[in-house]
């Protein structure tokens, strides 16, 4: 579909395309879908941008008509903020938990370099990589 005359940022238009789901195709944004409605919506996005409509106004226009389902991602406000915050918080908590668990494991073993033999091996290993070179498969991995 040829873009209508008028000045607008095609990159911005495409980024809006990716934020809008095609209302009649399962799981595809209007950027992806090749059905007629998606093409018409893409064209409408460009027309609106050419008239000076802002990104948010364009999105609101479509939400008003097709409902919030038309947005490709939950809005970052209200209850839907949870959609964004919860996974990030949980991943952060998991990493923190992992860190604590590791530290606890280390506490259980208070003396990391506990004996002269291993210390000597460590020293040798850090000075050269020789011990790895002799085709001993369980040496490293």
């Amino acid at each position: 579909m040829p873009p209508p005359p008028g000045v607008f940022d095609e990159a911005e238009a495409q980024s809006i395309d990716r934020m809008l789901m095609c209302p009649i195709c399962p799981g595809e944004s209007i950027d992806q879908s090749q059905v007629e409605l998606a093409k018409q919506m893409r064209q409408r996005v460009r027309e609106m941008l050419a008239q000076g409509t802002t990104r948010q106004q364009v999105l609101d226009f479509f939400v008003e008509r097709y409902g919030p389902t038309v947005l490709a991602a939950p809005p970052k406000s209200g209850l839907n903020l949870l959609a964004w915050v919860l996974p990030v918080a949980l991943v952060a908590a998991a990493l923190a938990g992992g860190f604590l668990a590791l530290r606890a494991m280390r506490r259980g073993n208070p003396e990391p370099v506990l004996d002269p033999y291993l210390a000597a091996v460590d020293a040798r290993l850090s000075s050269s990589n020789l011990a790895e070179g002799q085709g001993r498969p369980d040496n490293n991995g």
Binding site: L37, Q40, Q43, R44
Partner: peptide, 8 residues
């Protein structure tokens, strides 16, 4: 598709 989009 102007009318169709306007009417959602």
């Amino acid at each position: 598709g102007r009318i169709a989009i306007n009417y959602g």
